[in-house]
């Protein structure tokens, strides 16, 4: 697309503008962009700027914001071992999303993207965990992991071994969280893939059939390349989403045992909001923001070729 513009003869800005006005482009832009931009600026960007501002203050959330502390919140963050652990945990979540969640979602999407009644039923089942509210998700899974009454307790009893208290164990607790997150969110990515697969023109598949392509060949040489844009997007959402995991951790482990299972956002919630350190929480938010930004640009560099713009 870039090449197209370069071939065009250069016009002065005024000339370009008047041409745009003639063919209706300008009107479209002026009508179609503002609703999204205005809402976005008021409710997303402005609070972000304010949060960045607050991160330089010590503020409990009550009263006037007056206690300017400079970089103190950031210094404290750098030195806090629980924060280091939460960064490490978030990284593990990113890896799990890319290596487990996306492949699983893709496999399921390929199996059930065609529109049949049975497939619709499977879609419903696979997507249902995403619909289930976080509080219920945490509750039900903590039952499953319960060493006394839960599935893991029952398995241990059946095997005649000591029950394992998964969520009380530093080693297993985070694996449990990863399991729940994959369980809950793979359906989300599956839906993106299904929507993309629906858009693959069926004549291309038919052409491959006529050429005598086997099912695996069709997947790897026709379907996957044609939904590459969706896979890349989905992986991008998975990375950003993994960095922002929050609602699941609080009901499952509440960050424990010994604060070993916090994600960055659950850390922010616990140490920033729940403990009334709004300034400190904002500093964590700013760090998270920068981290997401770096990942996004890194991803754009690594995974996206020209043409796919994020």
């Amino acid at each position: 697309m870039d090449t197209l513009t370069r071939k065009r003869p250069r016009h002065s800005p005024m000339a370009r503008l008047s041409r745009m006005q003639q063919d209706g482009k300008l009107t479209t832009i002026l009508f179609f962009l503002p609703p999204a931009l205005v809402l976005f600026t008021i409710f997303v960007i402005w609070p972000i700027i304010n949060a960045a501002h607050l991160s330089f203050f010590k503020w409990s959330g009550y009263g006037e914001v007056t206690n300017f502390v400079g970089m103190q919140n950031y210094q404290r963050l750098v030195g806090h071992s629980v924060f280091h652990q939460s960064m490490w945990n978030s990284l593990k979540l990113v890896l799990a999303s890319i290596l487990i969640q996306i492949p699983l979602a893709l496999a399921m999407a390929l199996l059930i993207y065609r529109k049949t009644t049975v497939n619709t039923a499977f879609r419903l089942i696979f997507f249902a965990p995403y619909i289930l509210a976080e509080i219920a998700t945490g509750l039900i899974w903590s039952f499953i992991f319960d060493g006394d009454y839960g599935v893991s307790g029952q398995i241990a009893t059946a095997l005649g071994i000591e029950p394992i208290y998964i969520l009380a164990d530093r080693q297993y607790a985070f694996m449990a969280i990863i399991t729940v997150i994959v369980w809950k969110y793979f359906g989300y990515h599956m839906m993106i893939f299904i929507a993309a697969l629906q858009a693959v023109p069926s004549d291309l598949i038919e052409a491959a059939d006529i050429d005598g392509a086997g099912p695996w060949q069709k997947v790897f040489y026709v379907k996957l390349p044609l939904i590459a844009h969706a896979i890349k997007l989905s992986a991008f959402f998975a990375i950003i989403g993994a960095l922002q995991v929050f609602d699941i951790i609080i009901p499952l482990t509440n960050g424990g045992p010994s604060n070993s299972t916090h994600s960055i956002v659950s850390y922010l919630y616990t140490y920033g909001l729940a403990q009334l350190n709004v300034g400190y929480g904002s500093a964590v938010g700013v760090v998270l923001f920068i981290l997401c930004l770096v990942s996004a640009f890194g991803y754009r560099r690594l995974a996206l070729t020209k043409g796919d713009v994020l």
Binding site: M1, T5, P13, R16, M20, K25, T28, I29, L33, A36, L37, F40, V44, I45, W46, P47, I48, N50, A51, L54, G61, F237, I240, Q244, F246, V265, L268, Y269, L273, V278, G281, S282, V284, G285, L288, F289, C292, L293, A296, V309, L310
Partner: peptide, 27 residues
Amino acid sequence: IRFFGSRYIQSYLLLGLMFPFATAIVP
């Protein structure tokens, strides 16, 4: 539509992905 600033505006919107609700709930 290709127009001047399109990419900047898109990048601007992209910033919204970097910030979950909980982060900015007080502001």
